[in-house]
Design a protein around this nucleic acid. Structure first.
Lengths: 66, 66
DNA sequence: ACTTAATGACAAGTTTTATTTACTTTTTGT
DNA sequence: ACAAAAAGTAAATAAAACTTGTCATTAAGT
């Protein structure tokens, strides 16, 4: 599934490690999600939503369900 | 995590089995999610969102992060 | 050019948890 | 009261999220 994490990080001048720390996951997890290797759990998605103050739908793009 | 699945089903006069079939999961999965036993995967959450034509945030309630 | 920080990738393992299968209980309709 | 449908639950399996560790590549700063 595609996502806008990279951009959202950039807008806030955050590194993958920064984001990982705030979300309490490993840096590799952020990297993997960012690269579309797998999807976050729903709770983690909500955590991102809260952090970025954006609805999940504006962070993740489910079109074509990849 | 709490959710409004039961109500959303009722509004559409759908049974757990009906919903399960539409989402291509087992009926027990729907039941378990509905009862808050666990959360759906993000892809399944999106599928529900599409089916009910509602944002994920209006189906699932993450407040208090239970 | 050199050094460091940041990202990307990946294997392998762990662990959580989503999902299924099977069985029981409750509800609903007649 | 009975039968059938719907909902609930438990145990087991399957799947996938997530970690740790490591290394290679790219970007940024001095």
């Amino acid at each position: 599934m595609k996502n806008r994490l990279k951009v959202l990080r950039a807008e806030r001048d955050m590194t993958q490690a920064d984001l990982a720390q705030e979300l309490e996951v490993s840096r590799q997890t952020i990297n993997a999600i960012e690269k579309g290797k797998f999807d976050p759990s729903l709770p983690l998605a909500f955590k991102m939503s809260t952090l970025f103050k954006l609805p999940i739908e504006e962070i993740f793009d489910n079109s074509a369900s990849e």
